[in-house]
């Protein structure tokens, strides 16, 4: 009887203790809150727009994509007086391009390559061009080839012509500095009145003919660090 009473007396204690522990743990556990928006976004946008952009940025961060280009793109739009809806759409498109670029270039791609690849995709370059570039010289930096490719397309060189020229040059081992020189010459030709397709074809052929295979096979640095404006 005593034992029974004792068992009955202790039963509620055993039943309540876990509940108390759970309640205590719940009190200690921080309540999950939405990540705070970048202060730069809060400073330049209304609360709703900042929240929308922050959601895109958070999603990109969660998938391991570089987020600074997204914030920067939003600030750029604000600085240029674009409408909030347009800025959100551009940031969203840019985030998608970053994801597509990483997917095309491979999981081991550097942040700069992903940013340059997204720029090329946004300019209209096909995704398989990025894959072919990566396959052409695995392990080499694609930043300058992608920047040059995006520039050529921006200058109204047909995408196919620009892609094939850059891929051919990259496969042939042309160095970053020579690719940048190719870009400058194409730009000068276009400014002189040459059709963009002709300019890139002529200059690309000349580059391949004049490139020294032995020197051209030298691996380019992981980060070329070239200053296109430097003499």
């Amino acid at each position: 009887m005593r034992r029974t009473r004792g068992a009955m007396a202790t039963a509620p204690v055993f039943a309540v203790a876990p509940a108390l522990i759970l309640m205590f743990a719940a009190c200690l556990t921080p309540i999950p809150r939405p990540a705070a928006a970048d202060p730069r976004l809060e400073e330049r946008f209304d609360a709703r727009t900042a929240r929308e952009i922050s959601q895109i940025v958070d999603s990109a961060r969660a998938t391991g994509l570089p987020t600074e280009p997204l914030v920067s793109k939003a600030l750029e739009g604000a600085s240029k007086g674009a409408r909030a809806s347009r800025i959100v759409a551009v940031v969203r498109a840019h985030a998608a391009a970053l994801g597509a670029a990483r997917s095309a270039l491979g999981p081991g791609s550097g942040g700069d390559e992903i940013v340059a690849g997204a720029g090329a995709l946004m300019a209209g370059v096909a995704r398989d061009t990025l894959e072919r570039l990566r396959a052409a010289r695995p392990g080499q930096s694609l930043v300058i080839p992608l920047v040059v490719l995006a520039d050529l397309v921006t200058r109204r060189v047909p995408v196919d012509a620009a892609s094939s020229t850059v891929i051919s040059a990259f496969r042939a081992g042309v160095r970053d500095r020579e690719l940048l020189r190719l870009r400058e010459r194409v730009e000068q030709d276009i400014l002189s009145g040459a059709p963009p397709a002709t300019a890139v074809a002529v200059r690309g052929r000349a580059l391949l003919l004049n490139s020294d295979p032995r020197s051209g096979r030298r691996p380019s640095s992981r980060r070329s660090g070239l200053d296109p404006g430097a003499p």
């Binding site: 793109k73 750029e76 739009g77 240029k80 674009a82 347009r86 551009v90 498109a93 840019h94 700069d112 720029g119 946004m122 300019a123 930043v143 300058i144 920047v147 040059v148 995006a150 520039d151 921006t154 200058r155 940048l180 870009r183 400058e184 730009e187 980060r223 070329s224 660090g225 070239l226 200053d227 296109p228 404006g229």
Partner: peptide, 25 residues
């Protein structure tokens, strides 16, 4: 008007303009 630096690679800025692109080491 805002213009890209001369002789630099360029890119569309998606806001009806063009920007210069530089790769810093």
């Amino acid at each position: 008007a805002w213009v890209p630096p001369p002789s630099f690679p360029t890119a569309e800025d998606d806001f009806n303009g063009t920007v210069g692109v530089v790769v810093l080491e």
